[in-house]
Every structure is written in structure tokens, then in C-alpha cells.
Design a protein around this nucleic acid. Structure first.
Lengths: 224, 224
DNA sequence: CGCCGTATTGAGCGCTCTCAAGCTAGGTGG
DNA sequence: CCACCTAGCTTGAGAGCGCTCAATACGGCG
């Protein structure tokens, strides 16, 4: 029904892949519609380049509801988000008949170390992805604030059963970040405090019940 | 009031920066609270590493309202999002007394090409950032759908005054991605069609008025 | 032609926003 | 040292957007 567009021309590796005896092992793979490419928690073995078609990455929650994380179209690269944890953080399924190239990640690293130009190119490609989907998601105020606090605990490296840390920012700032009114931040923090989930005093926060906070954060979320 | 924690120990470049005659030119910089680090649209000259304190990146819209894009804390690296466009996409201001290290980006590239191990490390660091703030934003349904369509036009490389393309995904999929009900997608597309902004037929979309779509997308957004 | 998944359209409800009024903490000056 | 002042935070009441539930329409496929 719709023409299948191949995006090999714009692929970072095109010039290498086209040589005879290509120095980069790019395996082509065909996917029908609704075929699984990889699963949530699978170890990162490959970086994938969508050559044609479209893929979605997603999570399914305990109630069987799906949350789509990203779409990937012809020419786009999948798997960067798995590098840090070494596991794919989402499952991937084709939403149309697709062609995929797969590169073993260790091989990719090794190959790039011999081709510094590619390094800059790849960084640029990754960089681009930071601008996608900045308008997405619809978590409740409680979920957002719970997620925000949990992320802070992790990013500030607060290692304690009852983590205590400083919010350097104002309620207004948090609101502007989370897409909520400052009043809402205030109200939710008060509610959390009433439920003995945390203790909040101005810019100082102490989480008293990490489990409850996790539970709120995960409401309708992750945990497949 | 709060202790100043230096995060140099966890910095990717720590071992290099500590040598006498360090091979990597890492300039230290001190920022008071509310000091501008760089502006929206400034050319990417430096990658920054927050050594202590906290930074926010943000945009200001035509009504003077601020939208915060990210917070950066001790140990975190800023600037990856600028690599593709070669310009910082947001302005950056310290929200606390901070210490920052800056590395000229070209110098960083060159340096890394000589230290392939760092490459893998840096990719890992960047990868981590894809997991931050996945719960953020609160755009209206119309804004989200407008942004989504504009992003598709760009990512699918549809070059036309009235771009026409295939949504490979169902309304439900779009809803699951945008955090909206499938019914809302339907309703908004209908409304857009009534206002002659686009023509929608099942999975086929033709944008008739890119300017209006941009305007809706930018409502309360960007354009400083 | 008939079936079933997908899309559209409508009515009522709930979460979060806005507007507005107190409250608190910290800084300033007498 | 204390009264005052101001910015930020808290709390309350009403409004609006998008959700849920439900009914109907459509279209691809056997």
C-alpha cells in the first residue's frame, strides 16, 4: 500500500557496507509486521539500523497496558539507550514490514576505533535523538514527582535506606520541569508527607519509604 | 548550608586530568547561583562536566514563561544534545554555586580518537541520559499531536510544501506513545481537518498548513 | 456479503490548572 | 535584638481539558 523506502543511502556505514568484502559485518534481517526484534531485558548484542519500515519500542505494565517509548523509522539507529545498562530497556516490535541491519556492538566499537571520522558521525546521530519526543508522556502529578525524586536519589548518589538530599531548585523550577504548577508540587509533597512517604522541609527532602515511592512511580508503568 | 560535593572521582576524564601536564585541557570554572553558562543558539564550543553544584537548561517562550529541559548535577556531562545541530538547543544557568569543567569539543574528539577506551565510556555516559526524565512534560493534546506530526515530517524526510506520509501505527499506538487516549487522537485529527490544517484518511496524512501546525506546536513553547 | 478490528463521535467525571488569600523563613535596617 | 519586608511556599475554591464508557460507523479480508 505504501512504498517501501530504503534509507541505506543516509546510513552512517553505507560507504563501508557497499564495498566488496565489507570491513563491517552488517547482517540484513527482514521482519514482517508485528514481529519481535528483541525483548525488554535482553542483553545488548546488536545495534540496529532501520533500513526500511518502522519499529516501536515499548513496555507492558502489570495490567497488560502498553506504553510506547519510541518509534524508529528508516535510517534511524536503535540500541543506544541500552549501552549503559548493557540490556535493552524496552521491547522492540515491527509495526510494518521492515528491513533491519544489525551490527554486533563490540564489533562496532572496535571498527569505529579504526575510523575516527565515524566516531563524530555516530555521536551526531545519537545527539539528534535527544530532540525527539520532548513533548511526550502523561504521567499523573504524583507519578511524576515520585519518579523525579527517585531519579534524584540515583543521580545524586545518595546511598541510604532513608535517602536525604537537597533539592537545589524551587518548587517553581520543579514545576517548570515536570510540566506542573508549583502549587501542585507543593500539594503532592504535603500529601506524601501526610502518608509518611517522605519528610520535606523547604529544599531538604528525606525519603522515609522508598518502596511506597517506587510503587507510586510505577503506577501503570514498567515492570513487565 | 548544604555540603559541596565534588564529583571529580567519578568523572570519565579523572585519570587524565590528575596527571601533571595533563594531556586533556580541562578548564575549571566557578559559577555563582543564577549565573549563565551558555545561551540557547550559542555554537557548541565546549562539552561541560558538572563538578559540583547544579545547572538547569531551559527555554523561555514568547510570554516569558520558562520551560526547564533538564537539570544537571555533580558528575554529569552537558552538551551532548548540541552535537548534531552544532548549537546548544537550550540556555544553561546555575541554580546553586557550582564548579564546572569545560573541554573544547574538537579537542575532546581528537583526544578520544587516541583513547578508544574513553569512547566506550563516553557512549555509556550518553546512553544513561536517555533514561532521565522519561516522565516529564505536560503539553496539551493538540500540541503533542502537532509536535508528533512535525517530527514525523522531519524524520521521514518528506520534503514538500504539503507533506504527505503514512502513519504506520494505529491511533491506539499514537495514544500509547503520546500519553493520550486513542479517542483523543481521533478527535484532534478531526478538528485539525475541520480547520484545514491537514487531511487525514486512516493511516495516510497530508499536512495542508505547516505554518498553523507549527503555531499549535509552539503554543507556550520554545522560540525565545 | 458478512465479520471483526479500528476509528469516530457523544456524555459525564476527575485531575490539575488558575486565581487568590494566608503563611513562613530569612534578610535588612533601626 | 526585634519589627518589618519580601520571595517562596502552602492551602482553598471554581473551571477546563482529556479520560472513561458506550454506541455507532467504517473498511479490509475471508
Amino acid at each position: 500500500m505504501f512504498p517501501t523506502i530504503s534509507a541505506c543511502g543516509q546510513c552512517v556505514f553505507f560507504s563501508f557496507c557497499q564495498q566488496e568484502n565489507p570491513p563491517l559485518k552488517l547482517l540484513k534481517k527482514s521482519l514482517k509486521r508485528n514481529e519481535l526484534l528483541y525483548s525488554h531485558h535482553d542483553p545488548l548484542h546488536f545495534i540496529y539500523i532501520v533500513s526500511s519500515g518502522a519499529i516501536k519500542t515499548f513496555q507492558v505494565n502489570i495490567h497488560g497496558q502498553e506504553r510506547i517509548h519510541q518509534f524508529y523509522f528508516a535510517g534511524e539507529v536503535m540500541g543506544f539507550d541500552a549501552i549503559h545498562s548493557k540490556y535493552y530497556p524496552f521491547s522492540a516490535i515491527s509495526i510494518a514490514k521492515s528491513q533491519i541491519c544489525q551490527v554486533p556492538y563490540p564489533h562496532l566499537l572496535e571498527f569505529i576505533s579504526k575510523h575516527p571520522v565515524l566516531y563524530a558521525h555516530l555521536l551526531s546521530t545519537i545527539s539528534q535523538r535527544f530532540h525527539f519526543g520532548l513533548y511526550v508522556t502523561n504521567y499523573s502529578a504524583e507519578q511524576r514527582i515520585a519518579c523525579f525524586l527517585l531519579e534524584l536519589v540515583k543521580r545524586l548518589h545518595v546511598d541510604a535506606v532513608e535517602p536525604e538530599f537537597a533539592l537545589h531548585m524551587s518548587r517553581q523550577d520543579i514545576g517548570h520541569y515536570l510540566g506542573l504548577a508549583a502549587e501542585t508540587i507543593s500539594r503532592v509533597l504535603t500529601r506524601f508527607q501526610q502518608n509518611h512517604i517522605l519528610w520535606a522541609m523547604h529544599k531538604k527532602i528525606k525519603v522515609l519509604d522508598m518502596n511506597s515511592l517506587q510503587e507510586i512511580a510505577n503506577k501503570g508503568l514498567t515492570e513487565a
